[in-house]
């Protein structure tokens, strides 16, 4: 069995915990309970021939009081950079965080999740912003933990990038 450490990184309340809950347990709640420290979960996905265990480190979101502890990212094989489409500043934070993470653990695969796409009508992030990200060569996936859009996709893509194989998510029984 191959295992990989995967981190959820982003500003606070962007939906990191919700995305993990959706991905691992298939559930969603509108209630916001901020994460304190780290929450660990895991999920087995099929990548080509071998199953892969993703050990998910759901790290508390960065806010004005607390920077993310970089030591939590040590040894991560990949990470998801979560942005809340309805809050422009979460994108700026994501860009800063990406630089910091890369500085700390080197260039490992990551995917930007543009979350809360069910609210796309009221997004503050513009197509121009997305264009700028694409220019950097960043892989982006629009997602909604609420309506289960792009979630499986994003994790599967990351799994694939981490193992170099074509990945497909294994649904929970």
């Amino acid at each position: 069995m191959i295992q990989k450490k995967v981190c959820m990184v982003g500003a606070f309340a962007t939906g990191k915990t919700s995305l993990v809950a959706r991905f691992v347990k298939g559930i969603y709640s509108d209630k916001y309970q901020t994460t304190i420290g780290v929450k660990i979960d895991k999920k087995v996905v099929e990548t080509g021939a071998n199953p892969l265990t993703m050990v998910l480190w759901d790290i508390y979101g960065e806010d004005e009081f607390q920077n993310i502890r970089m030591s939590y990212l040590r040894g991560a094989a990949g990470y998801l950079l979560v942005v809340d489409g309805t809050r422009r500043e979460t994108l700026d934070i994501a860009i800063q965080l990406q630089a910091k993470v890369e500085d700390h653990i080197g260039p490992v695969p990551f995917i930007v999740m543009l979350n809360k796409c069910d609210l796309e009508a009221s997004w503050e992030i513009t197509p121009a912003d997305l264009e700028a990200l694409a220019q950097r060569g960043w892989k982006m996936i629009k997602s909604s933990a609420k309506e289960d859009q792009g979630v499986q996709d994003a994790f599967a893509h990351l799994a694939q990038q981490m193992t170099g194989a074509s990945a497909q998510s294994q649904e929970a029984a």
Binding site: Q3, I40, T53
Partner: peptide
């Protein structure tokens, strides 16, 4: 470095937590 589980043993008659989660935690 990664906090990933390499191996585990459990004594008989004990119910253990998911070792993957425990080791990461």
């Amino acid at each position: 470095e990664t906090g990933l589980l390499l191996q585990q043993v459990v004594s008989e008659q004990t119910q253990s937590q998911d070792p993957d989660l425990v080791s990461a935690m």
